[in-house]
């Protein structure tokens, strides 16, 4: 059995969280509160040292120093200042009378990143995917490859029909959409099984900690 206090605390918290499987209880409530509180505090400290200090404070300070020394700033210095100002505007939520100003940085975040994502999605989810699906339906001398390619093309085509929202799923169109959802569900089934197996490895790791590291029963 371990003589390390940290291991004992970790084992207690692990068992406390697992006790939720039985029912909600005071030990679970305690462990939950510790988990949520500690993680929120940890996140704050991490954000402070990895985001706020290097990306906001240091850059704004550099920009101000450059402005004082040279009387002018490069465009990227201005962008740092702009980011800093938007950050301060977010804090205005704490002042009820002018809290509405905090919507401006929110609008900048949502609007700008939506535009950026449009291109990324279009390339990765549409163009590259379509390009990968454009494959020969017949591969000379290789029946397996031919069947595989036909399945991929038919599956993708019918899957796209399922996600066509402007037409009701009836008749031939409905039949193709049904084939599409079958393809999708078979894919989900495979993904489900694969992920369950990976979750089992997480459970095994926890059990290994309890039985091996804590109780020392595994040699």
């Amino acid at each position: 059995m371990s003589t390390n206090l940290g291991v004992w605390i970790a084992a207690f918290l692990t068992l406390g969280i697992m006790s939720f499987l039985y029912k909600d209880n005071p030990i679970y409530k305690f462990c939950e509160a510790v988990f949520v509180g500690v993680s929120a505090g940890y996140w704050f400290v991490t954000e402070y040292f990895t985001v706020f200090l290097p990306k906001v404070w240091d850059n704004v300070e550099t920009a101000i120093n450059v402005l004082q020394a040279e009387g002018r700033m490069d465009w990227f210095h201005w962008s740092y200042l702009l980011g800093g100002i938007l950050g301060v505007l977010m804090l205005l939520r704490l002042v009820p009378k002018i809290g509405w100003i905090s919507r401006w940085p929110l609008a900048v975040i949502v609007g700008t990143t939506s535009g950026l994502w449009l291109i990324n999605y279009l390339v990765s989810n549409a163009m590259v995917q379509v390009r990968q699906t454009i494959i020969p339906l017949y591969v000379a001398g290789n029946l397996n490859a031919s069947i595989g390619n036909i399945i991929i093309v038919v599956g993708t085509f019918c899957g796209l029909i399922y996600f066509f929202f402007s037409k009701e799923h009836k008749g031939v169109f409905g039949g193709a959409a049904k084939v599409g959802i079958w393809f999708i569900m078979i894919t989900f089934g495979a993904s489900f099984g694969y992920t369950v197996m990976s979750r089992m490895s997480l459970l095994i790791a926890r059990m290994d900690f309890l039985v091996g590291t804590w109780l020392g029963l595994l040699k």
């Binding site: 988990f35 949520v36 509180g37 500690v38 993680s39 929120a40 940890y42 996140w43």
Partner: peptide
């Protein structure tokens, strides 16, 4: 609540 996945 918190930003950490499983604590959340």
């Amino acid at each position: 609540l918190t930003s950490m996945q499983f604590a959340y």
